[in-house]
C-alpha cells in the first residue's frame, strides 16, 4: 500500500510538473461545437508551436454560465454572438486589446469594424456572421414555409415533429418576430401574450436541442428544425431534403466574434490566435467548413465559390428583416426567465 501511495504521489507530481512546463505554449479556447475545422487548429499549432485545447458549448447562455461559474481565468478566448459580447463586456469578463496589439486589425471588413455591441472592436474580432431561422423537410410538407407559423402555429403535418434550439435568446427573439412585438418589450400585455403563445406552440414541439439541430433533420427524427443557415446547408448536403426559410415576419441575424477574456492565462498566445484568424486564408477555412460568412476583407479568393449561390445564403425578395438579438434589462430578463421555465416545465 505504501508503495502504491508513493507511486501515486509521484504520478501526481509528474502531471502537475508536466502541466506547468507545457503552459508556455498553450492556448485554451472556449468555442461553439462543430464550428472550427480541426485542420485549421493543427495549422495554427504547426505555424506557432502553440498547443490548442478546446472546450465546446452549445449556446451563448451556456458559455456565459460556465464562465461565471469559475471559468474566467482558465480560458483565453471564447466565441460569443453579438448580443453576448455586449453582456460579457457589461459583466467585466473581457480584456481590452490595446492599439497595435493586433497587427492584422486592419483586415476587418469596414462594416464590422465598429459594431454597436463592441464599439471600435475593443475586445473582439469578427469571426463569422449568418442567420438563424428554420429548415423544413420537403418530404414531410410541401406548402408555404416562408412564415414563422411553421414554428409557432404549425400545420397538422408538422405538429409534434419540431425541434427548437435550446437557447433562450434565439427562441424568444423568433417568437417576438412572430408576434410582431419588439424584443425585450416592457409592455405587460405583450409579454403575457408572448407567454400564452409559446405555451400554445410548445404542444407541437418534439424537443429542445441545439447540438443535434442538424442531426435530427438528417436522421428524419424531426421534420422542422430551428437552425442556423450554414448548419441547414450542411444538413442538406448530408442528404436531408430540407429547405431553409426566410420568413416574411423576419429572421435572426447574428455575428459571432472571438473575444479576449479577462485574466486570460495565455494572453500573448490569444492575440497570436486572433491575428491568425484575421488572415483571409485562415478565416476562409472556417467559412468553408461552417458555411457562414467571414467578416474579414480579402477572403473572396479563398472561399468556395459555391457557397455564394447556396439557397441558405440568399434571402428571397419577400423575406422579412434580419434582426439582431437585443440585450434585455434585468427586469425584462426576469420575465423572460419565467416564460422560459414555463415553457420547459
Amino acid at each position: 500500500m505504501k508503495h502504491l501511495m508513493k507511486s501515486g504521489v509521484a504520478a501526481l507530481a509528474l502531471t502537475v510538473g508536466a502541466n506547468a512546463a507545457a503552459a508556455e505554449g498553450e492556448l485554451v479556447i472556449y468555442h461553439w461545437f462543430e464550428y472550427i475545422p480541426q485542420e485549421l487548429l493543427e495549422k495554427f499549432t504547426e505555424e506557432t508551436g502553440i498547443n490548442v485545447t478546446m472546450d465546446t458549448y452549445d449556446s451563448n447562455e451556456a458559455m456565459l454560465a460556465s464562465l461565471k461559474a469559475g471559468g474566467i481565468g482558465t480560458y483565453d478566448v471564447s466565441v460569443p454572438g453579438d448580443y453576448m459580447v455586449a453582456i460579457m463586456a457589461e459583466e467585466g469578463m473581457l480584456d481590452s486589446i490595446a492599439d497595435g496589439e493586433l497587427k492584422n486589425k486592419g483586415n476587418i471588413a469596414p462594416e464590422w469594424a465598429d459594431p454597436n455591441f463592441d464599439p471600435g472592436r475593443q475586445s473582439s474580432i469578427p469571426y463569422q456572421w449568418g442567420s438563424t431561422s428554420f429548415a423544413v423537410s420537403r418530404d414531410a410538407y410541401d406548402g408555404d414555409i416562408q412564415t414563422t407559423d411553421i414554428l409557432f402555429n404549425p400545420p397538422a403535418e408538422l405538429q409534434g415533429r419540431i425541434n427548437m434550439l435550446d437557447s433562450q435568446g434565439e427562441v424568444m427573439a423568433m417568437a417576438s418576430l412572430h408576434m410582431g412585438i419588439p424584443q425585450c418589450s416592457t409592455d405587460r400585455e405583450q409579454l403575457k401574450a408572448l407567454n400564452a403563445m409559446l405555451q400554445e406552440a410548445k404542444q407541437h414541439w418534439a424537443s429542445f436541442n441545439s447540438d443535434t439541430a442538424k442531426e435530427v433533420l438528417v436522421s428524419g427524427d424531426a421534420a422542422v428544425g430551428q437552425i442556423y443557415d450554414g448548419f441547414a446547408a450542411k444538413a442538406r448536403e448530408e442528404g436531408a431534403n430540407v429547405e431553409y426559410a426566410y420568413p416574411t415576419q423576419g429572421y435572426i441575424a447574428w455575428m459571432d466574434n472571438v473575444v479576449l477574456l479577462k485574466d486570460a492565462p495565455n494572453r500573448e498566445n490569444a492575440l497570436i490566435f486572433m491575428d491568425f484568424l484575421l488572415e483571409p486564408e485562415n478565416i476562409a477555412a472556417v467559412t468553408n467548413f461552417a458555411q457562414y460568412n467571414a467578416g474579414v476583407t480579402g477572403t473572396e479568393s479563398f472561399v468556395d465559390p459555391e457557397l455564394a449561390t447556396q439557397p441558405e445564403k440568399n434571402p428571397h425578395a419577400d423575406a422579412g428583416p434580419g434582426v439582431f438579438i437585443e440585450v434585455c434589462s434585468e427586469e425584462v430578463q426576469a420575465v423572460y426567465d419565467q416564460i422560459w421555465t414555463n415553457l420547459k416545465k
Binding site: S59, A62, A65, D166, A206, F208, K344, K345
Partner: peptide
Amino acid sequence: GGAKNFMIGSLIEEQFKGNAGN
C-alpha cells in the same frame, strides 16, 4: 426525453449550466 419536460435533475442543471443562471 428531448430535454422538453424538466425533471428535477435538469431543472437544477439549468440553473448552473444553462439559460437561467439562478
